[in-house]
């Protein structure tokens, strides 16, 4: 069922892929990039979730992936991080293929997946410790980093509370801490700011900026354009499983605000069809 080496499917069988070229045209992954995706495809039943996505995330960039709901952001990031096997295509982390050498690639990756549970019968401190020990760190390092992370995420007071009793924002923060404990070279964060309060979000942004300044690479997905425009150096706009635009934020937004540019690219704005009866002046109760 899984054949990584087979070239991409023929265009005839893919109605939504009008001008798709067969695989040989795909250039090899860029070993200097932090994350290099080539020709990723994924189909769920009848729906093609990701169609021929190729992306290079430069080392040391703060990379935003934006797109409407159901655009294939999560699917793409899952395939890039070894959580979901692609139908076709490759993903490489600093030149190491995620699907042929997963152990080595995952050592360099810190992942915050969206829509998964945590081992929530553990306390916050236990969960972060667990992630650290799974990564093979020694006890002294784990203990020290767990304390640092709890402090950075403002969770010290709730270190002994079970994660199941955490609020949504605290849960995100403890998951983020578990993704960072092994000091990965690349952080891939799916919707990291969802449900996080503004103060914590600002703290997390500071942590991430410092991490990027020290040479780390961050990939975040989001649909808050404003945030991505302010925070990221690079951005990729994804819709219907394809990359519509990618590059530095300034290049992609081309003088407009990212939000306007995004709406231009993705389409779907409805004009002139208001809900007439919703106006309070029409008073019909």
């Amino acid at each position: 069922m899984i054949t990584l080496s087979v070239p991409a499917p023929q265009p005839a069988s893919q109605p939504s892929a009008p001008s798709h070229q067969p695989a040989p045209s795909v250039p090899p992954p860029d070993p200097s990039a932090a994350l290099s995706l080539r020709g990723l495809w994924k189909r769920f039943g009848q729906k093609i979730a990701v169609a021929d996505v190729s992306l290079d995330v430069p080392t040391g960039s703060f990379y935003g992936v934006v797109g409407p709901n159901g655009a294939g952001k999560t699917t793409t990031l899952s395939m890039a991080t070894g959580l979901l096997r692609p139908d076709f295509g490759t993903a490489a982390v600093h030149g190491t293929d995620v699907w042929t050498d997963p152990a080595a690639a995952k050592r360099r990756l810190g992942i915050l997946p969206d829509g998964v549970r945590l081992f929530d019968r553990l306390t916050g401190a236990q969960l972060i410790t667990y992630a650290g020990l799974l990564r093979g760190l020694d006890r002294a390092t784990v203990t020290e980093r767990t304390e640092d992370l709890l402090r950075a995420m403002d969770l010290t007071a709730d270190r002994d509370t079970f994660v199941v009793d955490y609020s949504a924002g605290m849960t995100k923060k403890v998951a983020l801490a578990s993704a960072m404990i092994h000091a990965p070279r690349v952080l891939v964060l799916d919707e990291p700011f969802e449900a996080v309060d503004p103060v914590s979000a600002a703290n997390i942004r500071d942590i991430l900026h410092a991490y990027v300044a020290d040479g780390g690479t961050v990939v975040v997905s989001s649909h808050v354009m404003d945030l991505v425009q302010r925070m990221c150096s690079h951005v990729a706009v994804v819709a219907q499983g394809r990359v519509l635009a990618a590059g530095t934020v300034d290049a992609v937004r081309a003088g407009q605000s990212l939000e306007d540019r995004f709406v231009d690219l993705v389409g779907g704005r409805k004009e002139g069809e208001g809900l007439a009866w919703l106006r309070s002046s029409s008073a019909s109760s």
């Binding site: 991080t81 070894g82 959580l83 997963p102 152990a103 690639a105 995952k106 050592r107 990756l109 992942i111 997946p113 829509g115 998964v116 549970r117 945590l118 081992f119 929530d120 667990y130 992630a131 799974l134 990564r135 578990s178 993704a179």
Partner: peptide, 12 residues
């Protein structure tokens, strides 16, 4: 484990 198993896959 349900989807918490993702941690085992993510850490490889």
């Amino acid at each position: 484990d349900h989807t918490a198993f993702a941690l085992h896959v993510a850490t490889g």
